[in-house]
Structure formats: C-alpha cells, structure tokens
Amino acid sequence: MPEPSTAQTLETAPKYKRVLLKISGEALMGDQGFGLHPPTVERIAREVQKVTDMGVEVCMVIGGGNIFRGLQGSAQGMERTTADYMGMLATVMNALAMQGALEALKIHTRVISAIPMDQVCEPYIRRRAVRHLEKGRVCIFAAGTGNPYFTTDTAATLRANEMQCQAIFKGTQVQGVYDSDPKKNPDAVFFPKISYDEVLQKNLKVMDASAIALARENRLPIIVFSLDEPNGMAGVVQGAGTFTVVSNEASGKQ
C-alpha cells in the first residue's frame, strides 16, 4: 500500500511542553547488524535538537538491543537476572553515546541511571531530574527501572509518568501502528488512532503489555511515528505529519 503523506510545516507552535522519546537500541545501529553507528546517532540527536529549539522539554529512554538483550541471553542459557542487568548496562552505553552527540550540538544533557555509577552519570533522583528538564536540559534515563524482568518500554512509561510528560513519543521505522508489518504486507492497514485495549487485544507490539497497562492507567498517550522521516519528531510535536495516537479513544475499525 502507498505510504501516507508526510508533508509537514514547522512554523506551528508545539502542542506539547514536555515529552519522553522512546527509541530502541537497534535504532542507533543504522544499517549495521550490531553496535553503534555514529552518523545515525548524530541524525537522531539533530531531530531532538529541532524539538528542543522549539522550547519543548525532552527526556529520553533508549533500549540496549543493539549491544545486548537480556531475554536473548536468558534464552541461550544465561541466568535471567544476570542477563537483564547486562542489558541495563548496554542502555547506559547507548545513553552516553547519545549524550555525546547532543552535547556536540551544544545541547545540555544529563544521563541519569537507575543503577548508581557516579563516575559516568547521575543517579536517578526524581526532583533533580525534573529540575534539569525545567532548565532546558535533555535527560536520558538509563538502566531501565534498575530491576530485572522489566523492559525499557516499562521504564519509559514509568519515567514519563514521574516526569509528568504529556506524551510518550515512540520512534520506530514505520509511520505509525499497522495491523501487520507494512514492510512485509503491502495491504497492511494503518491506524491513525487506536485504544490501549485494542493494542493489547490485537497484539500489535507497540510496547509491551506492562507499559501499555501503565500508560492506560495514567491516561498517558503514546504517539508512534517514524524516526527515519526528516523533521519527523518536530512535525509530530506540532500535530503535523503521519503518526498514530494510542489513547483511550478506539480506532473505529474492526
């Protein structure tokens, strides 16, 4: 099916004051099969810069799947708790890489870890993190929730609620939520809006079930958009472009 139009104008005032951007670790590896791709990290940093230049307060959670994924380690025989902690450390590495890219653009950034490691980043203290955001600094929350058995999706929803964000922005490789993978199925149906319950019932893999349930409980919208689109995040912040809003409002499609 043809992709929806992504025409945007960037002169509109932002519709959000504070948002959390959730991206996967795989988003940082570009066309590589593993690790970090510095030009890709820089490109994402520039997308964040466009949003902060609009006066929007931004915090981030980045997965660690480009380096190590706890579930995969567990599936290969590693003890689950140990594997999950290794995955948390991978998110710290990604957060530091993103911090470097943002600070190269003169954006003040703080990496805040749920696992204390004072030599490289700050420990998570909610009030301090809120103050950083109020001062216009980008906060990158690393090491998940600090607990095994919880994904970075859940960590993102938890931190977004704690920071009183107005929405979670889920950056992906497609322009929103479809009923199947649009890269494999040309007839995939696009949902401009969909409810939390529909996401769970249809098993659409927007975020894991715990994260969706936590967002639903706190009425926190999840906005799914393409991180590969130039000015994609800036456009969505202004309500322009193509994206899916996950909220209490149903899609109307069966």
Rank of each mutant, 00 (worst) to 15 (best):
202 K>R: 15
114 A>T: 10
101 A>D: 07
99 Q>V: 10
98 M>S: 09
26 E>S: 15
13 A>V: 09
242 T>S: 14
48 V>E: 01
112 I>D: 04
83 A>G: 06
28 L>H: 12
59 C>F: 04
254 Q>T: 15
228 D>T: 12
159 R>F: 14
89 L>G: 09
186 P>Q: 00
34 F>V: 06
78 M>S: 03
203 N>C: 13
180 S>A: 10
84 D>A: 10
34 F>E: 11
164 Q>D: 10
240 A>H: 14
230 P>D: 08
207 M>D: 05
111 V>D: 02
19 V>N: 13
63 G>S: 13
189 V>E: 12
120 V>K: 00
211 A>W: 06
229 E>H: 09
216 R>Y: 11
164 Q>S: 11
245 V>Y: 02
253 K>R: 15
214 L>G: 00
18 R>H: 10
63 G>N: 08
49 Q>W: 04
195 S>D: 04
235 G>T: 06
133 L>K: 04
44 I>E: 00
65 G>Q: 03
241 G>E: 06
53 D>A: 11
89 L>C: 13
218 N>P: 13
160 A>I: 15
20 L>Q: 09
144 G>F: 11
84 D>N: 07
141 F>T: 02
40 T>F: 13
66 N>D: 07
108 H>I: 13
248 N>R: 14
36 L>S: 06
24 S>D: 08
219 R>A: 14
160 A>R: 05
41 V>S: 13
141 F>M: 05
26 E>I: 12
139 C>G: 03
93 M>L: 14
96 L>W: 05
218 N>W: 09
245 V>I: 11
195 S>I: 07
36 L>Q: 00
87 G>M: 09
207 M>N: 10
242 T>D: 14
214 L>M: 07
138 V>E: 00
254 Q>F: 10
6 T>I: 11
15 K>H: 09
159 R>E: 12
213 A>L: 15
59 C>S: 01
238 Q>E: 11
37 H>I: 05
119 Q>R: 03
56 V>H: 09
113 S>D: 11
240 A>K: 15
246 V>E: 12
107 I>V: 12
120 V>E: 08
33 G>L: 02
76 Q>N: 09
66 N>T: 09
188 A>H: 04
203 N>A: 15
21 L>M: 13
7 A>S: 04
242 T>M: 09
